[in-house]
Amino acid sequence: MAIRAHASQIDSLQIGMNWFDESPGGMERMVKALVQTLPAQGVSVRALVAASEKVRASTLGVVTPFATPDMPMLKRILALRRSALQLRSERMPDVVAAHFVLYAAPILRMFNGVPKVIHFHGPWSEEAARENEHMLRVRIYRALEDYTYRHGTRYIVLSNAYGKILTRYGVDERTIRIVPGCVDVARFDIGVDRRTARDTLNLPQDRPIVLCVRRLVSRMGIEDLIDAIASVRQSVTDVLLVIAGKGPLASALQARIEERGLTDHVRMAGFVSEESLPTWYRAANMSIVPTVALEGFGLTTIESLASGTPVLVTPVGGLPEAVAPLSPDLVLERSGAEALGAALTDALLGRIALPDHTSCIRYARSRFDLDVVAAQIADVYREAIDHAS
């Protein structure tokens, strides 16, 4: 990992949500990556997350678990404030990095005078509204977002698309910096061929396999993808779609597969462990991200590329920004079952020239590897500190 020389070390306080090892998710993955990689960029790290006490020990005290995620909300917030006060009394940070507004909003004023960098992981209230959460909850989420985003010195977004969304909260676009998501390329580049990966997972060797790794919620477009396979199989009769992930739509999606007579062509793999995920990507001919709304970047895109497997994406949010520089052919013309079916058919029949294994990994390493992204984030932190001083 490249280590950059800096005139002085700076101290950051990261306000996350949960800890990745206990509650895997995109935001959690990013916070863990920053805890691990920022010190090499001259940025020391302390972090506040909702997690078990085991996390304090496993991170040698770097991460403070202020409460467990299942603790009642009021008790959780009170515990958060006590932990924040304790960390402040030990040492005032040079910069506060806020990732999750629910936990950032109650403590930001404890750090008056300290520059704040807001990591914008997505429009929480809009996502909740799309998932039909109660309107009162949506309004509370929006109020927390509005309050937190008023306190930023600089803002980090994953894509131009999310930068535009952030301006709808009244954030000055001149304070927004685009830093993409990151991936540990060394972990995903497992150095095995497709046949070996399929043997490991007991997958068929003689069928083209398309992999979709997604949380099973409506905005991910999984319903469209299942419907698309009905048309793909007309031209690629042995196609197999594997859907990996969990979520509230799991039962409905399985019923959809059965209703459309696709049980021989679509397999629900359920939750896939972090340890086996690179093998799943490597086993596939290609992966696909069929999102229909609110996609800031799509970490699964760069995970697939880091594994050497090309990925097709819908033209939603930041997805095109993640893959188009590698090949514009990876971006579909539009969302929906018809477009997904046409693109998959063309790719499987060789009518689209997909990037090869080596090109995918090289691209991921040059743009999204951990140290590459950590260096960019450290630069934004220093910019915020310089601006405040």
Rank of each mutant, 00 (worst) to 15 (best):
I257F: 00
F271I: 11
L277E: 08
N285V: 00
P278F: 02
L253P: 08
N285H: 15
R219F: 05
T279D: 06
Q205V: 04
E259T: 13
S251H: 14
P204D: 10
I226G: 03
C212V: 11
A197N: 06
A284L: 09
L277D: 11
L294G: 00
R219A: 01
A269P: 05
M220F: 09
W280V: 08
M286V: 05
C182N: 12
S235Y: 10
G245S: 09
T291I: 03
E295R: 01
P208C: 04
I222W: 01
P180N: 07
M268F: 10
D206W: 01
P278V: 06
L262I: 06
M286Y: 05
T200D: 11
L240M: 10
V239P: 09
M220P: 04
S287Q: 00
L225M: 10
D238K: 13
I178D: 06
D224V: 03
V232E: 03
S231W: 09
V179W: 14
R187I: 02
E258A: 14
T237R: 13
D224Y: 08
M268R: 08
D189P: 05
R207G: 07
P290Q: 01
D224H: 13
T196K: 13
N285Y: 10
I257S: 06
V289R: 05
V239T: 14
A283Y: 08
K246P: 00
V236W: 03
D224F: 02
A250K: 14
E258T: 15
Q205H: 12
P208W: 01
G261F: 05
G181V: 07
S287V: 05
M220H: 12
P204A: 08
R282Q: 06
L249F: 10
F188Y: 14
R207W: 12
A252P: 04
A293M: 07
G191L: 11
P278T: 09
S235M: 03
E223W: 05
I209R: 01
D264Y: 00
S251F: 09
E223V: 15
A284C: 11
G221P: 07
E223H: 14
V192P: 03
I178G: 08
R194L: 04
E258I: 13
